[in-house]
């Protein structure tokens, strides 16, 4: 992405990273997308309550700065693998919410033609190789994509998103080791929201910080406040530079919090109302970013209102598009199992 002009950059010299690095238009677009992620998930939740979406879903409300910050320095050709809590990653990498809604509604116009749903949402054209229903399942796949990048000399960088739960899966350790041994252009992003389903990292994980695991695989381990967009984007920027120049992988631990439960069956018995309330009121990533944008003069109340109403319209249109789209015919149940149809 193009940086801000030099004169502008000088006047921003003391501001945090993203305000020096990106234009006002780019930053407003980030706020738009953070709202888009939030409202998409709220819209999905409401549609679920109304019985328009079946199955389950894992909402990332409260983690929007992490998804947007990590994807900020990525180009359209760069790739990601995502997780069961992957709606934010998908939007951050460029997906259209109308096709995401359509997928959640099980429609043929969805990204996976109704075969994947929330847990397998993908947008291959934009470099999202897919969410994953298996904790840690996407991590070795990201390393494989990075191996392709190196072998084919495409210059692509691959980001593997996963949660704190995945850091105790064997796949995490095997994948990080291979990426380091082969110096692959991959960035491991652990979005640590404090709980693997109901089990806190304190009870599940031997190290204090998941980034500490990086030392075992001889790569930089970086901790960021995952609710502060600029911090996340700066760490991602450096990791992308490192990967792109052939120096190998980085592990970024983005410490964040999910406002909602693990999935739709969660009764939130493992954390207190006070804890949730504190994160929602005092550390909401959208509020924090919006306040900074306002404080640094990148946007005013009118601009924020325009973003909110624009997002609301896009969400409403997306839901209508999904509702109006056709369902796949049951005669097509066997499609896409193999490349050639029997």
């Amino acid at each position: 992405m193009a940086g801000a002009g030099k004169a502008v950059a000088d006047s921003r010299a003391n501001l945090p990273f993203v305000y020096r690095q990106y234009s006002a238009e780019q930053l407003k677009q980030v706020l738009y997308k953070m709202y888009l992620i939030r409202r998409f998930e709220e819209g999905a939740e409401e549609s679920y309550m109304r019985g328009l979406i079946h199955g389950t879903m894992h909402l990332s409300i409260g983690q929007e700065a992490s998804a947007m910050g990590i994807c900020m320095p990525l180009g359209e050709d760069d790739q990601i693998t995502s997780t069961h809590r992957g709606h934010g990653h998908c939007i951050a990498k460029g997906a259209e919410v109308k096709r995401m809604f359509a997928e959640f509604f099980g429609k043929t116009t969805g990204y996976c033609k109704g075969r994947g749903g929330s847990m397998h949402i993908a947008d291959v054209a934009k470099g999202n190789l897919g969410a994953n229903g298996i904790v840690g399942g996407g991590i070795p796949i990201a390393v494989g994509a990075a191996l392709s990048s190196k072998m084919m000399k495409t210059g692509k960088v691959v980001v593997s998103f996963f949660g704190d739960g995945a850091n105790n899966e064997g796949a995490f350790h095997e994948a990080l080791n291979m990426a380091a041994v082969w110096k692959l252009p991959v960035i491991f992003v652990c979005e640590n929201n404090g709980y693997g389903m109901s089990t806190s990292t304190a009870r599940s994980t031997a190290v204090k910080n998941i980034a500490d695991r990086a030392a075992a695989y001889s790569m930089p381990g970086v901790i960021v406040n995952g609710n502060i967009f600029s911090e996340v984007a700066e760490a991602s920027y450096k990791a992308v530079e490192r990967a792109r120049s052939g120096e190998g992988p980085t592990l970024i631990e983005s410490k964040t919090y999910r406002h909602r439960g693990h999935s739709k069956s969660d009764r939130n018995r493992y954390r207190t109302k006070e804890e949730i309330e504190d994160w929602m009121s005092n550390r909401d990533p959208i509020t924090l970013f919006e306040n900074e944008l306002r404080e640094f003069g990148f946007i005013d109340d009118k601009g924020i209102e325009a973003i909110r109403s624009g997002v609301a319209q896009e969400i409403a249109d997306g839901i209508e598009f999904a509702k109006a789209s056709p369902s796949p015919d049951v005669s097509e149940t066997g499609n896409y199992v193999y490349t050639e149809q029997a």
Binding site: P140, I141, V143, G144, A145, L147, M151, A171, M178
Partner: peptide
């Protein structure tokens, strides 16, 4: 060695790397 790659003893990770390479053009 770039086309005949010795992997660590990591069957799960190795298989996943192969899958990831396959979906991205190799």
């Amino acid at each position: 060695t770039e086309r005949v790659i010795d992997t660590p003893i990591s069957e799960l990770g190795g298989a996943g790397v192969a899958v990831g390479a396959a979906v991205t053009g190799m």
